[in-house]
C-alpha cells in the first residue's frame, strides 16, 4: 500500500504528506456521502426526460411541480402527521416512564434496586423485532392492532432500557445537598423530584430523547406488520405506497423522497452536535 511509505517517512514533509493524504480521504468521502443526496434533491425538480438525459445537470429550482403533486395528490401530509403523533407520544412516554424508574433506582436505597437496573438493562440486548409474532397476537387480543397505540406501546418499551440506563447514570451524579435542603424545608418526595431534581435532568433527557428519536421516527418494520389502514400509516411505511403509485414518474418519486428526508435532515443540521452525542451515547459511556 502506498500509505505505508507516507507513514514511515518522518519529518516535516512526512507530516504534511500524511495530513494531505488524510484531507484527500476526508474530502473524497464527503463527496461520496453528499453527491447521492444532492442528486436526489436535484432530481426532484426535474421531469423524467431531464433525469434520463441529463442526470447530473443543475435543474431549474423554481419548477416545484413535482413537490406540489406530492403534497396535494398523495397522502404525504397525513403520513407526516401520523409520524409526528406516534414519535411524539412515544418519546414523551418513554422519557416520563424512563425517568421515573431511573429516579427511583438512582435516588433511593431499597431492597432489589440493583436487580431492577439489571432488569431494565437486559432489554438493551434484546432485538424486539424477533418477538414480532407474540406482539402481533398480544395487540390483536388487546384490540389495538391496526391503531397507533400498538406502535406507541412497542416504541416506548423498546426505548425504556436505554432511557433508564442514560438517566440513572446522570441522576446518580446530581449532588445530594439540594435534595436534603428541600427535605429540610419539608418538601414532599414528589415535590423534590419535580421542582428540584427533574429540571436538572434536562441535558440527559435530550440525549436519551435523541438516542430514541431517530430509530422511532425512521422505523419501518413494526408499522409494516401492525398497520394495515392506509390513513394510519407513518411516513416510512407510507412511502412504499406512494412510490408504488408513481413508479413511472421518477421526478415525483425523488421529490417525495426529498420531502420525506427533509424534516429529520433539517433538525439534524441545526442540532448536529446533540445528535452525534445522543446517537453515540450508548456506545461512548
Amino acid at each position: 500500500m502506498s500509505m505505508q511509505s507516507t507513514y514511515d517517512k518522518p519529518g516535516l514533509l512526512g507530516t504534511y504528506g500524511r495530513d494531505g493524504l488524510m484531507q484527500i480521504i476526508l474530502i473524497a468521502n464527503t463527496v461520496l456521502m453528499l453527491f447521492p443526496i444532492a442528486i436526489m434533491i436535484m432530481s426532484g425538480f426535474k421531469s423524467n426526460i431531464e433525469i434520463f438525459q441529463q442526470p447530473f445537470a443543475i435543474p431549474d429550482f423554481t419548477n416545484v411541480a413535482n413537490f406540489v403533486s406530492m403534497a396535494t395528490e398523495t397522502e404525504f401530509l397525513r403520513y407526516l402527521m401520523n409520524s409526528f403523533v406516534v414519535t411524539g407520544a412515544s418519546i414523551f412516554l418513554l422519557l416520563t416512564l424512563g425517568t421515573m424508574a431511573a429516579y427511583a433506582i438512582a435516588r433511593y436505597e431499597f431492597w432489589g434496586s440493583s436487580f431492577l437496573l439489571l432488569f431494565f438493562m437486559a432489554g438493551l440486548m434484546v432485538p424486539l423485532k424477533l418477538a414480532i409474532i407474540p406482539l402481533f397476537i398480544l395487540f390483536r387480543d388487546m384490540g389495538i392492532l391496526n391503531t397507533h397505540w400498538a406502535l406507541i406501546a412497542v416504541y416506548t418499551a423498546m426505548g425504556l432500557p436505554s432511557t433508564v440506563f442514560i438517566m440513572t447514570g446522570f441522576i446518580r451524579t446530581l449532588p445530594r445537598e439540594l435534595e436534603d435542603a428541600a427535605r429540610m424545608d419539608g418538601a414532599s418526595e414528589a415535590r423534590i423530584m419535580f421542582s428540584v431534581m427533574i429540571p436538572l435532568c434536562r441535558p440527559a433527557m435530550v440525549i436519551a430523547g435523541i438516542y430514541n428519536l431517530v430509530p422511532i421516527w425512521n422505523d419501518f418494520f413494526f408499522p409494516l406488520v401492525f398497520i394495515q389502514n392506509d390513513a394510519l400509516k407513518t411516513l416510512p411505511q407510507g412511502m412504499t405506497s406512494f412510490i408504488g403509485e408513481y413508479s413511472t414518474d421518477w421526478g415525483v418519486m425523488f421529490a417525495g423522497l426529498t420531502l420525506a428526508a427533509a424534516p429529520i435532515t433539517l433538525v439534524y443540521i441545526i442540532l448536529s452536535k446533540q445528535f452525534i452525542n445522543g446517537m453515540t451515547a450508548g456506545a461512548v459511556k
Binding site: N29, M33, P236, Q237, M239, T265
Partner: peptide, 17 residues
C-alpha cells in the same frame, strides 16, 4: 456532519434512492 448525515435518514429513503 457529512459522514453522519445518512445515519439519521430512514432506511426506506436510502433504499429507494
Amino acid at each position: 456532519i457529512a459522514v453522519f448525515l445518512p445515519v439519521v435518514l430512514s432506511t426506506v429513503i436510502i433504499g429507494y434512492v
